[in-house]
Amino acid sequence: MATGQSASTARVPRLFAAVLALAAVLVVVDQLTKWWAVSALTGRAPIDVIGELLQLRLTYNPGAAFSIGTEYTWVLTLIAAAAVGTITYISRRVGSRAWAVGLGLMLGGATTHLLDRLLREPGFMRGHVVDFIDYGPFVGNVADIALVVGVGLILVLSLRNIPITGPAAEPEAAPEQPVEVP
């Protein structure tokens, strides 16, 4: 490249923007589905989608996964804020599309959970997360699914030793020198 940047470092700002865009889309989709769930499922019995295997059932979760730590919602809010900050910071270096997808899913999931903790009832930093997708022993939401997929993808990338910065750039070939014949 004429500017002296390698192709991989030129991709970093574009992939960071992709992380942010995917996270933003996920936040919108998650919040819209939660709005729908609250308006359509409040006061209703569970709705079977695939028998008892998959149902729509509205719950409010003050805790973490499996309702762990329900007395410490404010701590979960701080953890979610730290996760959003950390993922955003790490994402600035992303040079791999697969890492961008994984980090975007994680950032979107963590951000929407943070918004729930900050803005939903019963109050600031004590808000309950809206869950409505009941699949067996678990009840979750779109953000939970994104978090699980994002973490799984990052785990696979890490186990395969694929760096966050992407594949190493090919060294630029030196310009050919004319060969002198004696």
Results as ranks from 00 to 15, higher is better:
Leu26Asp: 03
Leu32Val: 14
Thr33Pro: 11
Lys34Thr: 05
Trp36His: 03
Ser39Arg: 13
Leu41Glu: 12
Thr42Gly: 02
Gly43Lys: 12
Gly43Val: 10
Ala45Met: 12
Glu52Tyr: 06
Glu52Ala: 14
Leu53Trp: 15
Leu53Gly: 13
Leu54Ile: 15
Leu58Val: 08
Leu58Cys: 01
Tyr60Cys: 01
Pro62Arg: 00
Gly63Phe: 01
Gly63Ser: 08
Ala64Asn: 04
Ala65Gly: 13
Ala65Asp: 12
Ile68Leu: 15
Ile68Ala: 14
Gly69His: 11
Gly69Phe: 06
Glu71Arg: 14
Tyr72Ile: 15
Thr73Ile: 07
Trp74Leu: 08
Ile79Asp: 01
Ala81Cys: 05
Ala82Val: 14
Ala83Glu: 06
Ala83Ile: 14
Ala83Lys: 05
Val84Leu: 02
Val84Pro: 04
Thr86Phe: 15
Ile87Pro: 04
Arg93Trp: 12
Val94Met: 11
Val94Cys: 08
Arg97Tyr: 14
Ala98Glu: 09
Ala98Ile: 01
Ala100Asp: 10
Leu105Thr: 00
Met106Ile: 13
Gly108Ser: 09
Thr111Arg: 05
Thr112Ser: 15
Asp116Pro: 01
Arg117Ser: 00
Leu118Tyr: 07
Leu118Glu: 04
Leu118Lys: 07
Leu119Cys: 14
Phe124Ala: 04
Phe124Thr: 08
Arg126His: 15
Phe132Cys: 13
